[in-house]
Design a protein around this nucleic acid. Structure first.
Lengths: 156, 156
DNA sequence: TGTGCTCCCATTGACACCCATCAGATCCCA
DNA sequence: TGGGATCTGATGGGTGTCAATGGGAGCACA
């Protein structure tokens, strides 16, 4: 197992803790950092999450721009500055940081959505709406899945 | 753990001391010099910071991003001359040097912003403005994150 | 003698760690 | 094939520990 697959909905307790789904934790088991990195990216109402290793590879990608260049600054800000390192507790839970709760509107429950090398965390109802939209759009546009020629480094 | 991630806002006490966030300190724990190097670079209203080791790599020009190779003298002037070596006290705090306070406009609070291999220290409100800018600009320019083609070590 | 800095100690509040319970799935065996 | 035993994952809650902060005592240097 190496990719995040499936959707799981878990409870957020009054301390702000959520269990990261066991299948996801299993994928992260080999990571040096026992936990997840959560950050905001383009999708509104959702936060992205990944392993620390994935983040480090992003960093190297960013560094291919010149360090201290404007592009690097902007990207570093958008990604690293608004990232949160969330360690697992003994039971595989993480604490939802306040800023991310605000962005996502997560309250009593959180939905974990696999996206391959990363996953997202949603407020369940917002996720439902998003899924409905996606269904309609794919039907209308008759989008089909295309397998990508395998070359290793997929982007996001 | 090897990259500076996240934003942390701490108080500056009347002696000019600030706690360096614990996660950052942990990354610096293996450094020979127990403290941080703070210096001014192009970003107005902010100071850059890193470990002593990172500074040495800059100096040798062996950093991954072959940085300023032509302009080493300029680099030496703009960075090394205005660098400050700030040791931790017993509680992991550093003292903000007057010149850097002046540049950044830091007063009662200071925000530590992870940028991967380095981090920045900001006056919190100036940081908010900068973050908003960065977000707009990355969206407008459609800058996207790219994973560097994986050089072997790819875990997950 | 005064100023500035470095240790050192006290306080506090958050959260990391620990343990208990509960629900669902699987297995075992009569 | 049905019922109990077992296991794992999800959830709830208590408490000790540590990070952040404030302040004071001692020391160096002017």
């Amino acid at each position: 197992m190496s990719v995040f697959i499936g959707t799981f909905e878990n409870k957020v307790d009054r301390k702000g803790r959520v269990s990261v789904p066991a299948p996801f934790r299993q994928i992260l088991a080999t990571s040096v950092f026992q936990g997840i990195i959560a950050f905001r990216y383009t999708t509104p109402n959702a936060m992205e999450a990944c392993s620390l290793e994935f983040m480090e590879r992003l960093d190297q990608g960013v560094s291919d721009f010149n360090l201290f260049s404007d592009e690097h600054d902007d990207l570093a800000f958008s990604i690293f500055a608004d990232s949160h390192q969330l360690p697992f507790d003994g039971e595989g839970r993480v604490i939802m940081p306040a800023p991310l709760i605000e962005i996502t509107g997560i309250d009593a429950r959180a939905a974990f959505v696999g996206k391959g090398q990363t996953f997202q965390i949603w407020e369940p109802e917002a996720l439902q709406r998003r899924k409905a939209e996606a269904r309609i759009r794919t039907r209308d546009q008759k989008l089909t899945l295309r397998l990508r020629r395998d070359d290793g480094g997929g982007s996001q």
